[in-house]
Every structure is written in C-alpha cells, then in structure tokens.
Design a protein around this nucleic acid. Sequence first.
RNA 1: UACCCGGUGGUGUAAUCGGUAACACAGAAGAUUUUGGUUCUUCUAUUCCAGGUUCGAGUCCUGGCCGGGUAACCA
Length: 565
Amino acid sequence: MSKPQPPTPTNFIHDIVESDNASGKHGGRVATRFPPEPNGYLHIGHAKSICLNFGTAAKYGGTCNLRFDDTNPVTEDVEYVESIQADIHWLGFDWQDRLYFASDYFDRLHDFAVKLIQLGKAYVCHLSPDEIREYRGTLQKPGKESPYRNRSVAENLDLFRQMREGKLDENACVLRAKIDMNSPNVVMRDPVIYRIKKASHHRTGNKWCIYPMYDFAHCLSDSIERITHSICTLEFENNRPLYDWILDELKVESHPQQIEFARLNLSRTVMSKRKLMQLVNDKLVSGWDDPRMPTLAGLRRRGMTPAAIRTFCERIGVAKKRDTLVDVAVLEDCVREDLNRFALRIMAVLRPLRVVLTNYPEGQVDEFETENNPEDPAAGLRKLPFSKVLYIEEDDFREDPPADFFRLAPGREVRLKQAYFIKCNEVVKDASGKIVELRCTYDPETKGGDAKDGRKVKATLHWVSAAHAVETDVRLYDHLFTKENPGAEEEGVSFKDALNPESLTTLRLCRLESSVRAAKPGTHYQFLRHGYFFVDPVDSTPGKPVFNRVVTLRDTYAKAERARR
RNA sequence: UACCCGGUGGUGUAAUCGGUAACACAGAAGAUUUUGGUUCUUCUAUUCCAGGUUCGAGUCCUGGCCGGGUAACCA
C-alpha cells in the first residue's frame, strides 16, 4: 500500500520560483492565477494549467487566483463562468475569496489607457482593419507608420473620450500603443489596445462600448492582483515584450514575470476549442459532457476521478517543448491506479451465455460470500445468490480453444468464483449454429471454490444467477479517434475522418449481480475481469442504473491474442 | 528566412556550482494470484551534429543541422 513516493516532481517553473525566492525578488511571495476566458468548456489541457498554477502556489505557500479574462463580450457568457468554476472545484482546487474578473478592472484599465495617451505612448488610429494589417508589414518587411500616429495628446484624449461615450462607430477607430513600426517583433508594431464594441457585457452590461485587448488587460490585471509569476502557454511568447512594455511605460509597482510552457496534447483526441465545438455542433458526440470528450465535464461523466487527473498532470511534467503528444495510456494508468484502491468489485456479465447445471437441484439457492475489494479488507464482504441457471461471459467459452486459452471449453473444468467447479458437457446451438446454452455439471465437493482432493483449474470465471440478475445497459467507451494525433493538420484530411466508429458500444440486457439494483449514480465499480465502470448520473433511473465504462482492466490475454493476429 | 522558442530511450519528463544519464507510461519475460486484474522481479531502449575548454560535458563555449511559433479591432 505505502509505496515509496517518487521524488516531488519539479519543473523549470519551480526552478524559477525557487531562484526568485532565494534572491528575494518578490519578497518570497508566490502569487499565481488561472485566467480562463469564459467562452467554452474546460478540457484536460486546462487541467494541466490549473494544476500547475494552483499546485505551484500550494507548493510554495502562496496563493492562486481565479480570474476570468472577460474582455470580449461578443464571445463570452455566464454559462461558461459557472461551468468553469464547477469544473475547477471538481478537480479539487479552491481560490477561496479570490474570484476576480478582468471586467472588474475596466475603470482602472481605462484610466491606464488615458495615462498612456498622456505619456504620448498611445494614439487613436482611424485606419480600417484592413489598412492596419497592411501598414503592419510582414514578418520580413518592416511596417509603416499610421498617418494618425502623431496626433496631439489633447486630440487623442478627446477622441478616446468620444470612443468611450459611444459617439463613434465600431471599426471607426481604435486606440493603439505607440511603440515601433520597425520592430522585428510584429506584436510590437503599434498594437491595438482598445477597440469599440457596442455589445452588452455579461457582467458590466451596457456600461462600456470600448473594451481592452488581451495584451493590455492581461498584464495590468496581473499587476493589479500583484501576481508574481504569470504562467501561460507558449503562444504568448511573442507577446511577452508587449506585456513588459506596458507595465514599464505605466511604471506600475508590481511587475509580474510572464513564463510560458507547452500546452498538453493527448493522443487519440483533439483539444482545440474549434474542433471540440465541431464535434458537438455536428452531433458527432452527445454534447460537451459526452463521456468520450476530453472536457472536464466529459471526463467527469465518464467516471474519471479528480485524483487521477491530478496525478496525470503531475506525471506528464511541464516543459517548453512544443508539439509533444502524451500517450492517453498514461491517463488510463492513473485512473486504474486510483480506482483500484477503492472501487467495489462486482460480477457483471456483459455478453451473457446461459449455463444450466444439470445436476444442481431445481429450486435450490446457495449463498456465497465474496470480498468487495481485495485491495481493501475494510470494504467488507457481500453475499451472492447461486442457482441452477446462470450466465457466464460469452468470451469465457470456446468450443475449439487455442492452446493458451484456459477458460471453459467442452469437457473442461473451471471455477466459478467463490462457488463451485463446473464442467462443460454439452453445447446447445440454435438453427443458425449460434451457441445459446451450455449444459454443465457442478462438483458439490468444491463448494466455495476449492477442491478437497487438491485438483486445480486454470481459470476462475465470474457469473450471475439468472433468476437474481439485474438487467441493464452498459456503455463501453473507447478512444474517440483511431489516429494517434488526429489534430495534426494534414491537407485535404479532416480530423473527423479519423473518428473511431467503435468509440461507443451500448450493450443491452447485460446481467449484473443483484446488489447493483441499489447502485447510486456517481458510484464507481470494478466489473470483475472487465474494467472500471461508473453509474451514469444522467441516464440512470431508480432500480436501473446505467453504466459507463471508465477504462478497461489490463488484459494480457486479449493483448496476446491481438498480437497473434 | 525578421524575431522568438525548442531538440535526452518508442512516448512524456528528470538529472539544481560540470561528476555513475534516471522516473513513469508503453513493450518483453517470469513469480504470485479464487479477477489472464493487483502486487513483485527482471529485461529492452536515450543525450541532433562537429569542434573546443576540462581529469571529466546532456550541462559551459563556438559553429552547424533539424523542428516549431509569430503578421485578429481573438485570447
């Protein structure tokens, strides 16, 4: 149980924090933030960022704020503000009373913009969007200065006021920072910092018709919150000089350090908001919480645990190497490791094959005790009813077994877990030749599953008494995509072409042991020899739990069989 | 090719003044097992290249090579 813990995983960001702490750069203070834009659902890539930000703060006795980066009212919505908070809490992190919104700072942000104008470092530009792009130049060619670049401070102040008061139309003009049109970094070629958007904001309503751009709002929000380490993904690398420029020009007291890391890519799924949105809109999945989705809502509905996701985020590490692909098997291993500890074991026959014990007395019912979790004796025992007609797994019988198959076959003896040894004597088929029933005998001398004469069997099967079984639906989930990296762009090929047609298999009329009749939605079980399953919180009804497969058990036999083919 | 970033087993990471290249997953073999699960043991496999400094280089220096990011009034 108590394996020696691996050394606390470290990463280059922790190195930076430790060297800052050693030099006293922030007075030993550590303050991070997780800054989602409320325009979509969180996915496992966000979980990496959440674990990094909250985890770093926790490791060094600091704080981590939740701040919504809600500077674009056109794409954002309260629906997401709520789902994001629920998802972070579910993952196991808490921002306590530090829930912030960039929109809370709109007044101050506006004042900073005014200050920048007064400093002669920002101007109102009437170039059209197309013209701005054209004037910006290209990656190789320098840009050229806007004809509006040298307006007086007074004129800029007046125009900016008119923008704010709604006197100017959208797209009529913008406020730009006055930096350097010849900068080798295009981000620094007089970036737009405020634009007119006559849109109602989910928090500030119609108070504003100008909204700050990310680059302007983000660094200043960090500064206002006295963030020490502003951790973000690699795509903001080129924006860092702008982040620093704004804070330097405005001479703010708090100047956080932006640090970029590589976002997560997981095999056999996609992570981009756009692609996930397509899956939902095209009805290729049932919604944002479809158990096959990499969204936190999907993973939760699937039955993945927060602890497993946290372990996963720890195991994959943090670095700056781009375009890496983490094998989804790592996630699956984390889930198995967590669930193995506490999931209660039950017998579930997914593809039932009827077995009649010809020598078992009609009407007799035996009761056997079995452990709820061999990993945890404290989980106790439960009773299983046993009778003349049973179901076993279709897969557990082969009429003509290969040499390494040691489950049931004609003339062969196996153990029914905790019950008896049984021997197959007769195979009953229907007109089409399909096996519909096995006629077997049981050995009363093996009650409990051990032979008094010491003879051994090579296999132990799970089983369910037909008369006592609960019939219900079980959904087997598999990877959404067959390709390792479906998100990798290839011309002429849509990521949707790689969708796995077998990502969902719904099994009806599965036979489960009677104890699950009372299974509560949101409970995890291990179906013996199958995998971990979760009682679906949405589709289950009283008396009829519906199960989602979280992940299969390792199956070395199936693997060997696959390798043979 | 303007600027920026990155290159360590199959994959993801670690190696903290330059000192035995390690951990996890994946893969292989075996032991245990009333789950072909778990657990345990063992194995396979790694520093982009070339020079230089050094007793010693994944790490430092020089020069290459390769890959990627960036030109929204998105974040």
